[in-house]
Every structure is written in C-alpha cells, then in structure tokens.
C-alpha cells in the first residue's frame, strides 16, 4: 500500500512562553484531504500549534512544512504562499467589525485573487447561501448577528477562496448544542464539497466524532494518541480514556489555583 500524501508535517517543534514549554518536540502529520481533529484540554497548546503553522507564532526549534514549504522561521514570502492556500474559522469568528458580512466574505477573495468587487460580492453571496445565511444578512454588520450566525459567516469567509486547507479553531465553543450541531454539519459538508484538508482543534468530543476522519490527542505539548475516529473508544490510553469520558480522576491533572 502506498504512503498517504502528507499535507502538513510538524517535526520536533518546540514553542515556549518564558519558562513554560507549550509544544515539546511536537510531531504531527496531516494527510491530504483528511479531516483531522486535535483534542485536548484548555491550555495544552492546541491553538499555539495552529498559530505556529500559520506563521502567527514562531517556534524556537523544529520543522513545519505545508505542501513541502518550510514555514517554521520562514520569511513573509513563504507564509504568504502557504496562507494563500488556507481558510480559517476562528473561535470567535473574528469577523472585521468595520465591514458588512458580504464585505468580510468578499475580502477573502479579493485579498488573494485579482477580481472585481462585483464578482467578489457574487462569490460572497453564493458562499453565504452555502452556509445557510439569507441574502438579507449580507449587508448587516457583525455586531448585528447572533453567535451562531457569526460562526456561519466566518465559515463562509474561510471557504470563500476555495482553499486547499481549512483550519477550525474550537468551532462549536460558545454555541448551544443545536447550533453546535448545525455548524458541525456545515463543516462536514464544506470539507466534503471543497475536498480540502481540514485540521480542527476542539475539546468538544461530540464535534470531534462528527467532523473527524482521524483524532489526535495533545497533552503536555505532545501528541499522546492518534488514530481513526472509530478507534478512540477502544484506545488503550488512560489519558484519552479520561478525557473522552470527562472524568476528574485519572492521569490528567488540571492546574487549579486555590
């Protein structure tokens, strides 16, 4: 059987904030066209991992390649080349306050392709309808939308330029279970339709099971388990077992200040 094509490869990546080691010789492979979900508790380095891939944070050591392009400690040209292939849904949607929803989505297109404002708007309206937002929402500002609608708009912006890679940062956090499930379905639908490689970070197990082809668990700056979604319940790993069942007693010790 041939080796699967690797879209994102992280090797021995170390990232510190002061004396605190967040990523500790971190290794991860994301295969092309798969949907990989990284789970883990709060503050274990999930967001830091994403930000290192995107070039928002620079790791102290190690290698990160996206489609073979080295991005760890790379220059702005490499980051721009990689970010041109990327779409990202942020935890709080991160829509630009000063733009309407349609302008937010169209920005994703015009920032990457030399298209007219009219065509960009048409693409934006099409992507908004893909995520179930009506035309009337297009000319509203982000402050006029509910949390779920913002997430949908953020998703529309992420897929607007038909990216090869999609990142989802805690896509269901702060949403009610019904809206969370709608977002999960939309993510699955968008990933299938675009054929993109998806990397999601979450601590919502329901979301992880629904979105993922494979799941990886991060703990103390390292991947401690990775496998197919169907295998997670039978993973012989006490860290995974404790996390997916949400037990307080076990090897995972949460730092609680009294």
């Amino acid at each position: 059987m041939s080796e699967p094509e690797i879209k994102i490869r992280m090797r021995d990546v170390t990232k510190r904030f002061g004396a605190k080691v967040i990523l500790d010789n971190f290794n991860l492979d994301v295969r092309a066209s798969e949907s990989l979900v990284v789970i883990g508790g709060s503050g274990v380095g999930k967001s830091v991992m994403l930000k290192c891939i995107l070039g928002i944070l620079t790791p102290e050591s190690g290698s990160i390649t996206v489609d073979g392009i080295e991005v760890a400690n790379a220059g702005s040209a490499e980051h721009e080349a990689v970010n041109a292939k990327v779409g990202m849904l942020f935890q709080g949607a991160a829509l630009f306050d000063s733009m309407t929803i349609a302008e937010n989505v169209a920005f994703s297109v015009t920032a990457r392709k030399p298209v007219s404002a009219k065509i960009a708007r048409e693409i934006a309206l099409m992507k908004l309808s893909m995520v179930g937002l009506k035309r009337s929402v297009a000319d509203l500002y982000p402050s006029e939308l509910s949390g779920g609608m913002k997430k949908r708009a953020g998703l529309a912006r992420a897929i607007a330029a038909d990216p090869e890679i999609l990142f989802f940062d805690e896509p269901t956090t702060g949403l009610d279970p019904l809206m969370g499930d709608i977002i999960n379905d939309l993510i699955v639908h968008c990933v299938e339709q675009t054929g993109a490689t998806a990397l999601t970070i979450t601590h919502d197990m329901h979301s992880a099971r629904k979105i993922a082809d494979r799941i990886a668990m991060i703990y103390q700056g390292k991947i401690v388990w990775i496998g197919d979604t169907a295998e997670i319940d039978s993973a012989a790993n006490p860290l995974v077992d404790q996390f997916i069942h949400g037990r307080t007693d076990g090897p995972i010790q949460m730092a609680v200040r009294r």
């Binding site: 930000k51 995107l54 070039g55 928002i56 702005s76 980051h79 721009e80 970010n83 041109a84 990327v86 779409g87 990202m88 942020f90 935890q91 709080g92 991160a94 829509l95 630009f96 306050d97 920005f107 994703s108 920032a111 990457r112 912006r157 990142f167």
Partner: peptide
C-alpha cells in the same frame, strides 16, 4: 487593540494580508 484581542489581526494574516 480590539482587533488584536478578538483575533481580527490574526484573521488578516490568514487572509494573505499583512
């Protein structure tokens, strides 16, 4: 500052905009 703390500055980076 608001754009920074709400990740809008990071969003610009992911949208290929310096």
């Amino acid at each position: 500052g608001t754009m920074r703390v709400t990740e809008q500055v990071d969003a610009l980076t992911t949208l290929s905009t310096n």
